[in-house]
Design a protein around this nucleic acid. Structure first.
Lengths: 298, 298
DNA sequence: CCCTCACGATACGAATTATATATGAATAAC
DNA sequence: GTTATTCATATATAATTCGTATCGTGAGGG
């Protein structure tokens, strides 16, 4: 039995006339008769009673008709489902992100993506960059907002935007009134940095830039989140370098001062499996890129 | 899309290897690859990710797999249903019957048929013979226990059993002690007969036999059921002729006396549409004939 | 009563389609 | 580097569907 037989059967059952049914099916009558006979042979029962003048459904045919219809409908649904999933209109995508992505790019992207693909379930998971690399490779997440650099040939990385690094100093600090500063002025300070485990690239680069500027920073303490870093700065325990976007945590007692010259690169990137060319990923990346562009302009 | 494609897809999805799947399907690998490609083209999406070394399901394939399985199951159910209905194992049969069939043949037959075909819904309807003829022709009932004769070329009739006609007289009747009587002895009696509308053949035959016996019966009244007839006989309003099976309505005040010589034919028959050669009818007739034989023997 | 029409079944050739064989390309394992 | 494995492609063959022509059978009309 093939779907063809079901379509033929339904046509004959509705027309109760082989000739008209054949016409409707864009074919001639003899093959239609044959196909119906073939179906009846397979079912082991007659579907029609041919009374040499009119055709009518047998009890078996009457029972089979709704089944045949529902089978065709079911098949259509299955086809559309496969197509929808293939086109990324329905499904699931697991998104990893570093904490600092929640300041701007993540909520924008997720909101936009959900509006465009309401049938895709978006699973969100906050993870530091190294864990995201693992999770991507394991397939636990499909895409991740990360802080470069990462090293894996199986992953693709794309920079979304670059942020200026700015100095964060307590309001009571003697230099808090200055419009701009340079790293080389800061040799004697105590430092509060974002923990290396959260963003190793940033940490290492700050150390490298300080070294270039001729000093070895005196690191008072490290914290896992920028919010905590700023809290500690506010308490007067030291100064820090943060992305300008961290300024959304506005505080009365902290002042942000732009840095002159070579500053640490502060990039937000998105990463995904190189082997994954699914529509979901493609579409999610498109939305993300668009949001990144908009944000950079603003 | 045809069922073939679904079977092929499931095989590949389960083996995740075109070669082994082809082997399982008793075919070679190239046509299997082609058929899968054809299916993917129709669905507008890839079902597998071929990574040149291993095959895995795409998201669309993962979504489509349970649908494909359920479609095949659904098709199997539909086939079995058609076959069951065609073979008369499930379905519905509407049975008409005259009141006097409830004395013996009807309950026996229905009980036996239900035991043999528990999935066939048996619809029962009490109707006098002429109404059954109409209902059979209209298709409102499929088979009927009737009292012959009936006249219709579109119906088939088969006699199930013949009953002796016996005389029913009140206990106080002067002849109530006699072992046997003949119609010709009964010229002067008052008669209570089953209404002509209930069983015209019987009524007409009694009149004919009486005429043969040399008298014209004085019909006091007619009733629609034998039970009522016997009640009136018991009340002493007259005597009657009834099938011996009507003796199940045993009453203290009525005596049944066998008739000698030519007695009215008392037949129970079964009728069905000549055009109807459905399995249900065939099987119901078989059961009915078997019950009729058993009963006659007993 | 014969003729014609309508309708489904059958017979057979043509076209389409699925399948098999042979082969290629790419990758992983030794 | 070589071999084995695996899926894709090209071409040939087999199967099957489909179209054309025709038959058989009732029903309706003249």
């Amino acid at each position: 039995m093939e779907f063809r037989h079901l379509e033929y059967f339904i046509a004959v059952a509705e027309e109760l006339n082989f000739g008209r049914a054949a016409q409707r099916l864009q074919m001639t009558q003899p093959p239609l008769s044959q196909q119906i006979q073939q179906l009846e042979r397979e079912l082991g029962t007659a579907l029609f009673i041919r009374t040499q003048r009119r055709v009518e459904l047998s009890p078996a045919g009457r029972a089979f008709l709704p089944e045949a219809r529902s089978l065709l409908k079911h098949a259509e649904r299955a086809k559309r489902l496969a197509n929808d999933v293939g086109a990324g209109r329905v499904g699931r995508i697991a998104v990893g992100f570093v904490g600092s992505a929640t300041y701007d790019i993540l909520p924008l992207t997720i909101r936009e993506y959900r509006a465009a693909y309401p049938e895709v379930y978006v699973h969100l998971r906050e993870l530091p960059t190294p864990s995201q690399v693992e999770s991507l490779l394991k397939g636990e997440i499909d895409v991740g907002f990360i802080r470069p650099p990462i090293a894996s040939h199986d992953l693709r990385v794309e920079t979304l935007y670059r942020d200026r690094a700015v100095l964060a100093v307590p309001k009571m600090h003697p230099s808090s009134h200055r419009a701009v500063m340079r790293l080389s002025d800061l040799g004697g300070e105590s430092w509060v940095l974002l923990a290396r485990s959260t963003w190793s690239g940033f940490y290492d680069e700050i150390l490298a830039k300080c070294s270039d500027a001729g000093f070895d920073p005196n690191i008072e303490l490290t914290a896992a989140e920028f919010q905590t870093v700023l809290g500690v700065v506010a308490a007067g325990l030291g100064i820090s370098i943060v992305p300008s976007s961290a300024a959304i945590f506005k505080r009365e007692d902290v002042v942000f001062i732009p840095l002159e010259g070579e500053v640490p690169t502060i990039e937000m990137s998105i990463a995904w499996r190189a082997a994954d060319d699914s529509a979901q990923i493609r579409q999610f990346l498109d939305v993300t890129r668009k949001m990144a562009r908009n944000q950079q302009g603003g």
